[in-house]
């Protein structure tokens, strides 16, 4: 977990440098800051998840409760997305705190997800063919959701029905994909646990 926090701080520092650089060259860095910070936080999660191997592992998870893990990830993602989008329009302390809280929750869950993945390798029964089939189904669902949301938002913007920025369409599609995958996996795990 410490490593994840250090990575997040490192990437946060990088975000500050990027923002400072943009401001130095006369660009409106403030407007892009939430996205820069959010993007780098996601990068830090990916970086830690990809390269970090924790020394201690959690107790083997209860397979009947895995849906809570995925719902938590979905909640963290929702908080982060909402705060990022709203912060760009209205600067406020509660929104900033929501962003920090959701990033903290996301980092903690990402660290746990990483440890779980190692546990799965040590004990393949925890991630057997049923769990793998659920994950494949959730990924398929996520791909469909991403495509559909991108098409709908892109079309709304293209036809000038709703004024959306290209960045919003991109973030919206990515968010929809992640949420659809996590919620589908949570639902499938919950259904199997009944």
């Amino acid at each position: 977990m410490t490593r994840f926090i250090l990575d997040a701080l490192g990437f946060g520092l990088l975000a500050g440098l990027v923002g400072g650089g943009l401001a130095y060259y006369g660009l409106d860095a403030k407007a892009y800051m939430p996205f820069i910070v959010g993007g780098l936080a996601v990068m830090s999660m990916w970086f830690s998840d990809r390269f970090y191997r924790p020394k201690s592992l959690p107790a083997p998870p209860d397979a009947k409760r895995m849906h809570w893990h995925y719902l938590g990830l979905a909640l963290a993602g929702t908080g982060m997305f909402a705060a990022l989008v709203l912060l760009q329009r209205h600067e406020s302390l509660p929104l900033f705190l929501l962003l920090l809280a959701s990033m903290g929750l996301g980092l903690w869950l990402a660290a746990r997800q990483n440890a779980l993945r190692i546990l799965y390798k040590q004990n393949p029964a925890l991630f057997d063919e049923r769990a793998q089939a659920n994950q494949r189904r959730a990924e398929k669902w996520a791909f469909g959701a991403t495509l559909e949301v991108a098409v709908i938002l892109g079309w709304l913007d293209h036809e000038q029905i709703v004024a959306l920025s290209g960045a919003f369409v991109g973030f919206g599609a990515a968010y929809a994909g992640v949420m659809a995958g996590l919620l589908m996996q949570a639902w499938l795990e919950w259904r199997d646990a009944r």
Binding site: P124, A125, D128, E129, R130, A131, A133, R191, D192, A193
Partner: peptide, 22 residues
């Protein structure tokens, strides 16, 4: 489940017809 190397949840879903095993 332990004998065949899967989780108990998987055996349960096979018995209930929710999951078709390989």
């Amino acid at each position: 489940a332990e004998a065949v190397g899967v989780s108990r949840k998987t055996i349960n879903t096979v018995e209930n017809g929710v999951f078709v095993p390989s």
